[in-house]
Amino acid sequence: MACRSIAFAMAALLFSLTTTHADDSAIINRWYSALMVADRTELADLLADGVRIKLDDLGVVQSKQEFIASIDEWQGAVAGAEIRHRIEKSEGGVTTVIACYDFPSNDMLIQETFAVADNRITASSQASIAETCDDY
């Protein structure tokens, strides 16, 4: 009987870890879809109130309010662009993504890391990997 209880507990734990990964993946997919069209409402909904967004290449850390305020500028930059992304790793509420930002005049390969809790992005960091997406 004890073995059955342990097996059930392990199965429940594995299911919850799989569900968490699936939920984080859905959050990440929503993030890139909203980013592509500069959807302020969706982006604000995805970000936790105390989120910190770190742009390593620029040496900038933005709050939720600062990030949302920068969307007007981003909207012009993203016009005609494409963003492709793939999840490299996801564990313990942290997801690492490789993203190709393919703008009309250039492209760049970026590594982004997202901490997710309660279906919200609680932290994000972004750093360039390459000046082209050739390795994507």
Results as ranks from 00 to 15, higher is better:
residue 96 T to Q: 03
residue 96 T to F: 10
residue 96 T to A: 05
residue 98 I to L: 13
residue 98 I to E: 03
residue 98 I to K: 03
residue 98 I to H: 10
residue 98 I to G: 01
residue 98 I to V: 10
residue 99 A to Y: 05
residue 100 C to P: 07
residue 100 C to N: 10
residue 100 C to R: 01
residue 100 C to K: 03
residue 100 C to F: 03
residue 101 Y to S: 00
residue 101 Y to C: 00
residue 101 Y to H: 11
residue 101 Y to A: 00
residue 103 F to P: 00
residue 103 F to Q: 01
residue 103 F to N: 01
residue 103 F to A: 01
residue 104 P to H: 09
residue 104 P to S: 04
residue 105 S to V: 07
residue 106 N to C: 02
residue 106 N to Q: 09
residue 106 N to L: 03
residue 107 D to K: 06
residue 107 D to T: 11
residue 107 D to I: 02
residue 107 D to G: 15
residue 107 D to W: 02
residue 109 L to G: 09
residue 109 L to S: 10
residue 109 L to F: 04
residue 109 L to R: 12
residue 109 L to N: 03
residue 109 L to H: 10
residue 109 L to M: 13
residue 110 I to R: 03
residue 110 I to C: 14
residue 110 I to Q: 07
residue 110 I to K: 11
residue 110 I to W: 15
residue 111 Q to S: 10
residue 111 Q to A: 07
residue 111 Q to V: 09
residue 111 Q to R: 13
residue 111 Q to K: 15
residue 111 Q to N: 09
residue 111 Q to F: 08
residue 111 Q to I: 12
residue 112 E to Q: 15
residue 112 E to M: 08
residue 113 T to E: 13
residue 113 T to M: 15
residue 113 T to A: 11
residue 113 T to H: 12
residue 113 T to F: 05
residue 113 T to L: 10
residue 114 F to E: 00
residue 114 F to W: 10
residue 115 A to T: 11
residue 115 A to D: 12
residue 115 A to H: 11
residue 115 A to N: 07
residue 115 A to V: 07
residue 116 V to D: 01
residue 116 V to R: 00
residue 116 V to T: 13
residue 116 V to M: 09
residue 117 A to Q: 14
residue 117 A to K: 14
residue 117 A to T: 05
residue 117 A to F: 03
residue 119 N to T: 08
residue 119 N to A: 07
residue 119 N to F: 02
residue 119 N to Q: 12
residue 120 R to S: 06
residue 120 R to A: 06
residue 121 I to D: 00
residue 122 T to I: 14
residue 122 T to Q: 05
residue 122 T to W: 02
residue 122 T to S: 14
residue 122 T to K: 10
residue 123 A to Q: 11
residue 123 A to N: 08
residue 123 A to R: 05
residue 124 S to R: 15
residue 124 S to W: 15
residue 125 S to V: 03
residue 125 S to K: 05
residue 125 S to G: 14
residue 126 Q to N: 15
residue 126 Q to H: 09
residue 126 Q to K: 12
residue 126 Q to L: 15
residue 127 A to Q: 15
residue 127 A to C: 05
residue 127 A to S: 15
residue 127 A to P: 02
residue 127 A to L: 11
residue 128 S to C: 06
residue 128 S to P: 13
residue 128 S to K: 14
residue 129 I to G: 00
residue 129 I to W: 06
residue 130 A to L: 08
residue 130 A to G: 09
residue 130 A to W: 09
residue 131 E to A: 04
residue 132 T to H: 08
residue 132 T to G: 05
